[in-house]
């Protein structure tokens, strides 16, 4: 199944929040088509009677007790914020 440039634009803009040039869209459409083709090929494998695998590790029930641990000091928590206002992360207004 071929992935069209329009599908790539929609995925990039709506789902991945990426701004792509037309050349990048063409490239990605080709790459994604190959990936989806590979998955289609995998789909052909007979899996009747095979239990779906939810996790590759043979581990289960890893829990921790409900005990509070120290959190980051606010200055450290906000150290990587592109923009800080007071003790908040600041982001472009969500409502225009």
């Amino acid at each position: 199944m071929a992935i069209t440039p329009n599908e790539v634009r929609w995925i990039a803009r709506e789902l991945a929040r990426l701004d792509l040039s037309d050349a990048e869209v063409e490239d990605l459409a080709r790459d994604l088509t190959k990936i989806v083709g590979y998955v289609d090929q995998l789909q052909e494998a007979k899996t009747d009677g095979v239990e779906p695998l939810a996790h590759p590790l043979e581990l289960s029930n890893v829990f921790r007790p409900d005990n509070p641990q120290p959190s980051l000091p606010v200055d450290q928590a906000l150290a990587n914020a592109p923009l800080r206002k007071g003790d908040f992360y600041a982001v472009p207004g969500v409502f225009e």
Binding site: R64, D66, N67, P68, Q69, P70, S71, L72, P73, V74, A77, L78, G86, D87, F88, Y89
Partner: peptide, 26 residues
Amino acid sequence: TRTKLFCGCSTEFGLPPNTATCPVCC
């Protein structure tokens, strides 16, 4: 609970902003 779902940060209501976070929940 006293702590968050996947880390030990406090769930107490009304703490000063961004004082109950850690690398996991961030």
